[in-house]
């Protein structure tokens, strides 16, 4: 069976585990641990190695979704998870501007690994303090052609839209399929 892989990254508590959980057909394989440092006030548990979700495409093909750990001290995992990815989503908590700089740092790090297609998901758009996606794009200092999309990671339809948009970006740069060799 062929597998293709996408990575979901973003700062701590940006919603990566929820994002994968919303569309994965298997319960997300989580590697969470109780938080012991001062980030505990934000949430009780966090991803320390990766999240893993899966969507079966057909009998011969599956899509794997990998979520990176959000805390900076686990960023050595990013390179490992990035190996062979088709593209990546950077999730940003739109209601926490204190994480925007970290989101930009993560994006720059991933772009530095290899020229891989990506989209930015402006998550938590249901929060009344959320910055609109177009304002977030300017705040992050992104080029006009970068897609910054509104997102609610707990809603399946919203996550589907983000993944489809990423696939369209990937499709733009994908090579044409080779025609089968003719028999002589």
């Amino acid at each position: 069976m062929q597998t293709v892989k996408m990575v979901v990254t973003g700062p701590f508590n940006s919603g990566k585990t929820s994002f994968i959980g919303s569309v994965s057909e298997i319960p997300v394989v989580r590697t969470e641990r109780k938080i012991t440092d001062n980030t505990r006030s934000v949430k009780e548990q966090t991803t320390v190695a990766m999240d893993f979700g899966r969507i079966t495409i057909d009998n011969d093909l599956a899509l794997y979704l990998f979520g990176t750990p959000g805390q900076k001290r686990f960023d050595f995992m990013w390179e490992i998870l990035s190996e062979g990815m088709l593209g990546f989503v950077v999730l940003v908590d739109s209601a926490r501007p204190e994480t925007f700089r970290e989101a930009r740092r993560i994006l720059d790090t991933f772009r530095g690994y290899s020229p891989t297609p990506f989209v930015i998901a402006a998550n938590k758009q249901d929060d009344e303090d959320a910055w609109p996606a177009e304002d977030l794009k300017i705040a992050l200092g992104l080029d006009a052609e970068v897609k910054v999309l509104p997102c609610i990671a707990t809603k399946k339809e919203s996550v589907k839209e983000i993944l489809l948009e990423l696939l369209y970006v990937i499709l733009e740069s994908a090579p044409e399929d080779k025609a089968p060799a003719r028999k002589k």
Partner: peptide, 25 residues
Amino acid sequence: VAPVVPAEPVGRGVLLRVIDRLRRI
């Protein structure tokens, strides 16, 4: 920072299958 090995190029056919499936889930 060590360079990451880029993905093997995936053909349009595979991508279109993934897109089609995602639309239906």
